[in-house]
């Protein structure tokens, strides 16, 4: 479903992705792990159309999408949840959900906290609630492909667990997913395939403890 072939990309003269080849089969979940600066977020930007690759091929569902704009991809069924709090802080919770095109009832049922806060400005909620709201887009828009960048960043374990419950449900309902994470074990538990990235390339070494804590551990 997601096919990257020898993708190079970067900012200006600085190359971040140095030939990434990655395949996520339809209906499966791939966890992409790796240390900071490995190029994970750059990869997400290339997939979502925010950054044009300098060479290589990007296919989504068999369609060549190297030159597609982010909004075109989004309307075609790709749901990208970028890292950080991917919400509009100056809109209310209900307004954020209206922008996502879909029935908010699904979200309110899954995250009752958001229902209680629907009239509140999204930016005035806690980090965990903001991430729930951002993640709601994966629930409400019924995407064909879901790409999530650092869902657990800066969140307490309880909330991470709650969000990953939903990830599991979506996975079992057959959504193709690429989960980019630092929290290795949580993500690996859901994944059909675990891929480790380092220095802008897919690393052959898939033992995470080695990647994080060095060979001496």
């Amino acid at each position: 479903m997601i096919d990257l072939m020898d993708v190079h990309a970067g900012y200006g003269r600085i190359e971040v992705l140095r030939g990434v080849t990655l395949n996520v089969p339809r209906g499966t979940v791939t966890a992409l792990l790796g240390p900071n600066g490995a190029g994970k977020s750059t990869l997400v930007k290339v997939l979502s159309g925010q950054l044009r690759s300098s060479s290589g091929h990007v296919h989504l569902g068999g369609v060549h999408v190297n030159d597609a704009a982010p909004d075109e991809l989004a309307r075609a069924g790709l749901c990208t949840i970028p890292e950080g709090r991917a919400i509009f802080p100056n809109l209310t919770v209900a307004e954020n959900l209206r922008l996502m095109r879909g029935d908010p009832a699904v979200v309110y049922e899954r995250f009752p906290k958001l229902k209680a806060r629907q009239k509140q400005l999204a930016g005035s909620m806690s980090g965990g609630e903001q991430q729930m709201l951002a993640f709601s887009r994966a629930l409400i828009t019924d995407p064909a492909v879901l790409v999530i960048d650092e869902l657990s960043m800066g969140l307490a374990p309880v909330i991470v667990a709650e969000l990953y419950e939903v990830v599991k449900e979506l996975a079992s309902s057959g959504v193709t997913m690429l989960i980019v994470e630092q929290f290795a074990e949580t993500a690996s538990a859901v994944a059909d395939q675990v891929v480790v990235m380092a220095h802008g390339e897919i690393s052959a070494d898939s033992d995470l403890a080695t990647v994080y804590f060095g060979g001496t551990s």
Partner: peptide
């Protein structure tokens, strides 16, 4: 609503599928 969303985060609005 999409216009207001663009005020804060135009790139994110594009990921939501709005046409910038």
């Amino acid at each position: 609503l999409a216009m207001r969303a663009c005020v804060d985060a135009p790139e994110l609005a594009a990921l939501y599928g709005t046409r910038p």
